[in-house]
Nucleic acid binder design. Structure first.
Lengths: 237, 237
DNA sequence: CAGTGGTCTAGACCACGAG
DNA sequence: TCGTGGTCTAGACCACTGT
């Protein structure tokens, strides 16, 4: 039935994980591998699946734990909202961390996305969004320097470029064009979200437009599975 | 700079892949590992990234090849359309394969999604969508048996339950509620799409509604990255 | 049959976090 | 300092493909 140990392992691990209460600690990898009768490499392959589903949490130097049940941020994609707004509506709180603000020059790709010249001056804003338990999203916004200067982000920035622009009232924002992909985590994003390299992530690449149809912001958003539920209502015909 | 061989490997592999013409064959894994000065396991880890991006294609028993440049099916998510329709609009052709039609009984999860009793009789339609080069999507539709009988699918079914229902004209479809996730491929889906286990996929879970707000179809769609570009326009405020 | 990618093992060393 | 998970190695066997 199961030619490979992997399937059996997954089943046994699923049973083990479900039999334990939230926050419980699993045996160490070498021990668990011995108990399951497989090598540590194979065990880790199987564990990846469960981490990807948000069922376990691995912390280097500490151990592996059953993930706590977590409320989900549920939202439609018809309206552009900040994660802060979505969280608020879901009765959750999020906070921002590891904020980095840089002045950068547009490369070919960014120039195209923002409809600017190559080498144009840009503000690049990188940060991590945390729930109470863990980091759940990694966000990178890139804007023309004349739309949002570096100094404007140095105090009072709470994590959302969208909310900042809306509060400021200018430029007047109209819509966002968001491209939706599934990707594996790069090393950089993996570290930020405390997951393994190549873990599965949902990726939004969004261009934000103002009333003059100028692109005022390009953003990359990386979402950890299990903490968000994005849906869209599609009309027929 | 790069504490691990992995980063360097990725760079060297990227150069190698980009230096080769489409369809070119890469050296075998043991040879390439030796050339790159890493173990085969590490090489394969790095290769996964490129396969996930659709840049290479691995075929067991044959070899690893640079992926041909492929047209992309670009579509907005505001309107529900079949993959056949989207492909047509993109000037591509797709075909269906490995069609499986089963009569099944609703489990708790399906009953909830279709708003039916547990054990209700359902028609389950599974198939793979192929472009000229390769399988690119794995689709599973589940409908109440009285909406679509097994016999109706035995001839002339071209791959889209949506198109079939639209052509029939009843029930009258109004909209679909689609939930969007990123997931790792299960063994089943991985085999169908000829990719590695846990390869990253975009997943749509959709409930299709008729004019009486009944759920007439629940579908799971798994999309290979690189062949589709899904986008949505989000309005501000 | 030979050669490919797919899986698995046993063991090693490293980076990190807690005591 | 110690134990954890993160990475990597060298080698083995299996499943699949084409000849």
């Amino acid at each position: 039935m199961s030619p490979y140990p992997f399937r059996r392992l997954q089943i046994e691990l699923a049973e083990l994980i479900h039999s334990l209460p939230a926050e419980a600690r699993l045996p160490s990898e070498p021990l668990l591998a011995k108990q399951m009768g497989v090598s540590r490499a194979t065990l880790r392959e199987a564990m990846r699946t469960f981490e990807g589903q948000g069922l376990i949490r691995r912390r280097q130097g500490v151990g592996t734990f059953v993930a706590p049940k977590v409320p989900v941020m549920d939202t439609g994609l018809e309206v552009l909202e900040s994660l802060e707004t979505i969280a608020l509506r879901s009765g959750m709180t999020v906070r921002m961390g590891e904020l980095q603000v840089e002045k950068v020059a547009a490369d070919e790709s960014l120039a195209k996305l923002l409809n600017l010249e190559v080498e144009a001056e840009l503000t690049c804003v990188t940060r991590i969004i945390f729930t109470e338990q863990r980091p759940v999203a990694y966000l990178v916004d890139t804007l023309p320097l004349d739309i949002l200067g570096v100094e404007e982000l140095e105090s009072g920035f709470t994590g959302s470029v969208l909310d900042l622009l809306l509060k400021r009232g200018a430029p007047k924002l109209t819509q966002s064009r968001t491209e939706i992909k599934a990707i594996g985590a790069t090393s950089e994003v993996a570290r930020a979200l405390q997951i393994q390299r190549d873990a599965v992530l949902l990726h939004f690449a969004a261009q934000l437009y103002d009333e003059d149809s100028r692109v005022v912001d390009y953003s990359d958003s990386y979402f950890l599975p299990g903490y968000f539920r994005f849906h869209v209502v599609r009309r027929v015909g």
